[in-house]
């Protein structure tokens, strides 16, 4: 019906008295690389489990690739590659044997091409050299890579990757980024849950932010940052005086260091800020407006606290 890879309406999951996912309306357009963000325990994995039909929602409904779940799971899921909450394999089988096992279970996969596809998937995640090793001897990152390989055994229209870079070395992280880019270029949609905001800024086109089970923001990446209040940055050698001026003008969250003062500019016109600084005799060496980083936006949306929502 729609051109959405993932669409959910009011998706809700209750565990006992706790609402782990609260009326989430996901909208992931086809071809998007969707960064699914949120603090620990905010409900990302739970949402992903519902999307894949592993757990049934308490309320709400959703579609994958235009097919209603869970009724049409047999049609949708073969086109969906998934990595959910870390790797899971048989420890006493080799990496390649584990992939072959998964492939053997897939009715839509051709037995004839199984060996070639297995080898290609291992190659794509850089595991060819360790293909014959028992899974139990794999390092954390190798395990994670194998899980990504399993998601790539057959061509996919949608990849749902829950923290794919968990435990990967910098090269691995970079390769996953490249891989996600390549998959998107091939036309696949990627839903990527991660805590690495720098990665998100580099690869994602869309972002959804979870907080205490609610989807508190869902936008194109650029728009999300535009919408957030920009910061005024004043370069000066009298930060104390500059900060006073900014506060007087009504800027919020004013903070200063030795040579620089920043504050949320809100509705205040930038030229007024400069004029006021000059008027009060504060030497201004530089003035700029900065779109907030994704991290700022994220913290704005989900709060400063370190405690998990539980």
């Amino acid at each position: 019906m729609t051109d959405l890879a993932v669409a959910s309406q009011g998706l809700t999951k209750r565990f006992g008295s706790q609402v782990a996912v609260d009326a989430v309306d996901l909208v992931v357009p086809r071809g998007a690389v969707y960064g699914f963000l949120g603090p620990n325990g905010s409900g990302k994995t739970t949402t992903i489990r519902m999307l894949l039909g592993l757990i049934s929602p308490t309320a709400g409904r959703h579609e994958l690739l235009g097919r209603g779940m869970p009724d049409r799971a047999a049609e949708a899921l073969p086109r969906v590659g998934a990595l959910v909450e870390g790797p899971g394999f048989h420890p006493y089988l080799s990496g390649a044997d584990n992939l072959r096992r998964i492939d053997a279970c897939d009715r839509t996969a051709e037995a004839r091409t199984s060996a070639a596809r297995t080898a290609a998937a291992l190659d794509r995640v850089g595991l060819s050299a360790a293909a014959g090793k028992r899974y139990r001897t794999y390092s954390l990152g190798m395990k994670q890579r194998l899980a990504i390989a399993a998601a790539l055994l057959v061509p996919r229209d949608l990849l749902i990757l829950d923290e794919p870079t968990n435990g990967l070395d910098p090269q691995g992280t970079r390769e996953v980024r490249t891989l996600v880019g390549a998959l998107a270029a091939e036309g696949a949609t990627v839903l990527l849950s991660t805590h690495l905001l720098a990665e998100v800024e580099q690869v994602c086109t869309h972002v959804g932010v979870m907080h205490r089970g609610k989807l508190v923001a869902q936008e194109q990446l650029g728009k999300l940052r535009e919408d957030a209040t920009p910061q005024a940055v004043v370069l000066t050698d009298q930060p104390q005086a500059a900060a006073d001026v900014l506060r007087k003008l009504g800027l919020t969250e004013v903070t200063g260091s030795a040579a620089e003062v920043t504050g949320k500019i809100g509705a205040v016109a930038p030229e007024k800020v400069v004029a006021a600084l000059v008027h009060d005799g504060v030497p201004v060496r530089g003035f700029s407006l900065q779109a907030p980083s994704l991290e700022d936006v994220f913290v704005q949306l989900t709060g400063q606290g370190f405690d998990v929502s539980g």
């Binding site: 489990r49 894949l52 039909g53 592993l54 799971a73 047999a74 899921l77 073969p78 969906v80 998934a82 959910v84 909450e85 870390g86 790797p87 899971g88 394999f89 048989h90 420890p91 998964i102 279970c105 897939d106 399993a150």
Partner: peptide, 14 residues
Amino acid sequence: NQGTLRYLLTVPVG
């Protein structure tokens, strides 16, 4: 226990 069940079900295996 090994975490393979979720991956079997998402293959999907009915």
